[in-house]
Amino acid sequence: MSSQPSWPVNTWYVACTPDELTSGPLGRQIGGKQLVFYRNGDGKVVALADFCPHRGAPLSLGFVNVDGDLVCGYHGMVMNCDGSCKSMPGQRVQAFPGVTAYPIEERYGFIWVWTGNAEAADPALIPDFSWFDEPGWTYGGGLYHIRCNYKLMVDNLMDLTHETYVHASSIGQTEIEEAPPESFKDGDTVVTQRTMENISAAPFWKQALTFNDLDPEALVDRWQISRFTPPSHIMINVGVALAGEGGIDAPADKKASSIVVDFITPETENSIWYFWGMARNFKADDAELTNTIRESQGKIFAEDLEMLEAQQRNIDDNPDRDLLKLNIDGGGVLARRMLDRMIKAEQSGA
């Protein structure tokens, strides 16, 4: 990995979900750093460099003991939560140099890690997704490991024109590419939005209308509003409403809508951890519906995975080829410019 990463460092990234920590320590590379995550005796999540100070074994191959300490699985080195060496059978190791501990926050059903200067880690800098915790909302999602640069996924989600082709059997329809998107900055975020009026619903949205007790064959007004928050969080307000009922502002009983949740965490220059899901505020207590939507959405995002990995291979094989930019790429271009400014400021010491 280059000494100058292509992503912001002094920022919060989604590292994992709580259920990934139920069976012991979790090793995961985040932003080029090999980290280990576990819960200590107080139930608090801890993140350390995944490197035993004794012989360099991954601490993630160890276990959490009854006291909530992380024990190396090679020779039994026990680590403190601050990364210092606590003990080792038959040895005096308290003076050993320890490993880096990383700031952690557990919020909105995810584990967030700060990968840069720990003194700058301010929990208030985690974007506000408070609707995760609001009554009447529910969420279902998953995780994909994708072999592509994280900016390619940002491009993908800030330009939904590809739905017509990549997702033709689910959320795609020709009306998407016929409706020009509008892209603009909104404070510290980038927004790309598109609306389509008086059209037939795509297959996925026909299903959603049915779930919401609406006629799946009715003409609808459809919207897509992608909002990028650096470093790599994208929330997409999507939905359909019965035609002429106000679109996104239609009464709840006249529409089916949700928020597509996208947390993109760089692993390396050419791989990411992609936390995907959908939050909705209709029939929130219907667990079977949540599972049905999760399964359907997972298939849709698997199509993105296949395309993005093939795209990355092509780019790697053709390093001298420039990628073209069209009007549909406006949101991705603005997002990349915002990221480039953040990265340049970090690397210049600003």
Results as ranks from 00 to 15, higher is better:
Val78Trp: 07
Val78Asp: 12
Met79His: 10
Met79Tyr: 07
Met79Asn: 10
Met79Leu: 15
Met79Thr: 10
Met79Lys: 08
Met79Ile: 09
Met79Cys: 12
Asn80Trp: 02
Asn80Tyr: 03
Asn80Ile: 02
Asn80Ser: 11
Asn80Asp: 13
Asn80Phe: 04
Asn80Cys: 13
Asn80His: 08
Asn80Leu: 10
Cys81Gly: 06
Cys81Phe: 03
Asp82Phe: 04
Asp82His: 04
Asp82Tyr: 05
Asp82Thr: 04
Asp82Ser: 06
Asp82Arg: 07
Gly83Met: 06
Gly83Glu: 08
Gly83Leu: 06
Gly83Val: 04
Ser84Gln: 13
Ser84Asn: 13
Ser84Thr: 15
Ser84Ala: 10
Ser84Asp: 11
Cys85Arg: 09
Cys85Ser: 15
Cys85His: 09
Cys85Asn: 09
Cys85Pro: 09
Cys85Gly: 07
Lys86Ser: 05
Lys86Val: 05
Lys86Trp: 04
Ser87Tyr: 15
Ser87Gln: 15
Ser87Gly: 14
Ser87Glu: 15
Met88Pro: 03
Met88Val: 05
Met88Leu: 07
Met88Ser: 09
Met88Glu: 14
Pro89Tyr: 10
Pro89Asn: 09
Gly90Ala: 13
Gly90Leu: 14
Gly90Ile: 12
Gln91Asp: 10
Gln91Phe: 11
Gln91Trp: 07
Gln91Met: 15
Gln91Ser: 12
Gln91Cys: 14
Arg92Phe: 13
Arg92Thr: 08
Arg92Tyr: 12
Arg92Leu: 13
Arg92Asp: 12
Arg92Asn: 12
Arg92His: 14
Arg92Cys: 12
Arg92Pro: 05
Arg92Gln: 14
Arg92Val: 04
Val93Ala: 10
Val93His: 11
Val93Pro: 11
Val93Thr: 14
Val93Ser: 11
Val93Tyr: 08
Val93Phe: 09
Gln94Asp: 13
Gln94Asn: 08
Gln94Ala: 15
Gln94Ser: 14
Gln94Tyr: 07
Gln94Lys: 14
Ala95Met: 04
Ala95Pro: 00
Ala95Tyr: 01
Ala95His: 05
Ala95Ile: 04
Ala95Gly: 00
Ala95Arg: 08
Phe96His: 04
Phe96Ala: 10
Phe96Trp: 09
Phe96Met: 12
Pro97Phe: 00
Pro97Val: 03
Pro97Arg: 06
Pro97His: 02
Pro97Trp: 00
Gly98Arg: 01
Gly98Lys: 01
Gly98Val: 03
Gly98Trp: 02
Gly98Ser: 03
Val99Phe: 00
Val99Ala: 00
Val99Asp: 00
Thr100Glu: 05
Thr100Asp: 01
Ala101Ser: 13
Ala101His: 03
Ala101Tyr: 00
Tyr102Cys: 03
Tyr102Ser: 02
Tyr102His: 04
Tyr102Asp: 01
Tyr102Ala: 02
Tyr102Ile: 06
Pro103Thr: 02
Pro103Phe: 03
Pro103Lys: 01
Pro103Asp: 05
Pro103Ala: 03
Pro103Met: 03
Pro103Arg: 02
Ile104Cys: 08
Ile104Tyr: 10
Ile104Lys: 07
Glu105Met: 09
Glu105Tyr: 02
Glu105Cys: 11
Glu105Phe: 03
Glu105Gln: 11
Glu105Trp: 04
Glu105His: 02
Glu106Gly: 03
Glu106Leu: 06
Glu106Met: 06
Glu106His: 05
Arg107Val: 13
Arg107Tyr: 09
Arg107Gln: 14
Tyr108Leu: 11
Tyr108Cys: 11
Tyr108Ser: 10
Gly109Ser: 08
Gly109His: 05
Gly109Lys: 02
Gly109Phe: 09
Gly109Asn: 06
Gly109Asp: 07
